[in-house]
Design a protein around this nucleic acid. Structure first.
Lengths: 301, 301
DNA sequence: ACCTGAACACCGTTCAAGT
DNA sequence: ACCTGAACACCGTTCAAGT
């Protein structure tokens, strides 16, 4: 008789009860608590027992009820889809969207996907590459549409597209790779190609076209980062904007009284205007496009 | 035979050279660069080697010379000054500058300062606040100078100042807090105040002044982030730009052949122009200022 | 072929204990 | 008053072992 780990022999016993019909589909199997009592084992062992049975697809967790026996006829369809790179990237995207890039760890991702952390490494080389795949996926979600006939509405649409990608996935601001070492992302490259197509009708040089593209990119990227840091702070501290301001006002005032900033004071006290990332985007986009227009005029004239 | 971390065995070897007199007091021990060459390890490992030896009191950094062997008779007086917030922030700044924000951990910082990690918490509330203090310190290093008489040279100087702060401390791109939740940094606030002073002579509204300031900020911030990701990639992989490109070219070409990007191809093949973060900065700054000029003309006219 | 568990070398931060 | 060591609850990733 081989000495197998306790959790395995307990699992075998429960498996027997299911196979002999002592426990029918829908019935609750012993809870972890019940297992510790019945077999006199530690909680960790009991948890392992249920995890093993769940992994075999014999039982599943019914929220609010407990762990119940799966109906074998339904088992096939209820079974989790096989682990694939696409499924991993999707889940990672959702996790980062809802909780930020910091919350995306290989271990948490594995739990969400109901596997071990190491199973992920069979489909993805590591976390760095995963984030790169996520960024590419994100860039593929929103269609760019046809290239407009004129450069100005074209650049405007490009900037709005980029802004939307960042707005849907704030963490991308931190992930987007450098300009000079372009991330190997087909979808990001497609964006570059689209912008160049927009600029093709202009008399700009190749250098000017590329610089125009990257200037717009840097501006939107800068805004996105601010947006992301904002969001991150909210997630980390659990405070909304207003609450944060309220909490930090005394400290702020103290700083102000020590170092007075009369102009900033005057400007903000002026009030009566919107200041948001949205208004900033519109304002900056307008200025940048006006600047490009001036350059095109010079070149043509 | 136990397999100890590479940095430890290298440290042991250098320690041996000191103890056997191969390296005498005052002699330079191998620099980080020399260590990477001699043992074929990454920069991070080489830095760890020297940090370990420094911590043992066997070597010390001689500014302008390198890391030299300490004379054991003088070792006592060379004792480190008391731990202060200023000293911690300084050391953190240097660590982040040379190895990136990821390498800045409380534990490593403590080793550099020759104390325990927990001693730091007596002077600084935590890592988040430390980074904020570092950012403020960085903004205080470069003087802004007098406010020029005209807005355009003024904004230009502001942008160059910001660019220089980021260039000296690349990690700041990741650390700089959001626009709407201004970091409580007197020195960053002083910059805002300076830009507003520059714009005071213009006929712009308060809203336009603030938006102009933040647009410029977002652009420089976006560039800085690209710069930082670039640097980070270099530190992480230990590859220079050229080496990286060389190594990834096959993969790149494969991607290109699968998804052809004819316009990007044409533009880059055109060549004969500079494309760097510096050229991008100059280009984008020019466009942005032209856009602001157009707005001012409209307002005046 | 695919997945797992234990292990390694790390984190930031707490807490009780030392000097 | 100031610093330390052990501990906690985490990381990403390796490796050998399991099914």
């Amino acid at each position: 008789m081989t000495t197998e780990p306790p959790y395995l022999s307990i699992a075998t016993e429960i498996r027997g009860r299911i196979q002999t019909g002592v426990l029918a589909p829908g019935d609750r199997v012993p809870s972890t608590r019940a297992i510790t009592r019945e077999w006199g084992v530690a909680m960790a062992t009991a948890t392992k027992v249920l995890a093993a049975l769940r992994q075999e697809g014999l039982v599943r967790v019914e929220p609010g009820v407990g762990t119940v026996v799966v109906d074998p006829r339904q088992a096939r369809q209820a079974t989790a889809p096989a682990l694939t790179r696409a499924r991993i990237v999707r889940a990672a995207l959702e996790l980062a969207d809802s909780e930020g890039l910091n919350a995306l760890t290989m271990r948490r991702l594995a739990t969400v996907l109901d596997t071990s952390a190491m199973a992920l490494y069979r489909h993805v080389p590591g976390k760095g590459e995963l984030v790169r795949l996520m960024a590419d996926e994100a860039c593929g979600e929103v269609p760019l549409g046809p290239v407009p006939g004129h450069w100005r509405p074209g650049l405007e649409r490009a900037a709005r597209w980029l802004r939307e990608v960042y707005a849907r996935h704030r963490w991308m601001a931190q992930a987007m790779a450098s300009f000079t070492r372009p991330v190997a992302s087909p979808n990001a490259m497609a964006y570059t190609e689209w912008v160049l197509a927009v600029l093709w009708e202009t008399p700009l040089t190749s250098s000017q076209k590329l610089h125009t593209h990257l200037t717009l990119f840097a501006f939107v990227q800068g805004l996105a980062l601010a947006d992301d840091l904002e969001e991150q702070a909210r997630l980390d501290t659990g405070l909304s904007d207003g609450e944060w301001m309220e909490q930090n006002e005394p400290r702020f005032d103290a700083m102000q009284s020590g170092h007075p900033y009369p102009l900033l004071d005057a400007v903000t006290r002026d009030g009566g205007f919107e200041l948001s990332l949205e208004s900033l985007f519109e304002f900056g986009l307008r200025r940048t496009l006006d600047g490009v227009a001036a350059m095109i005029d010079e070149t043509s004239g």
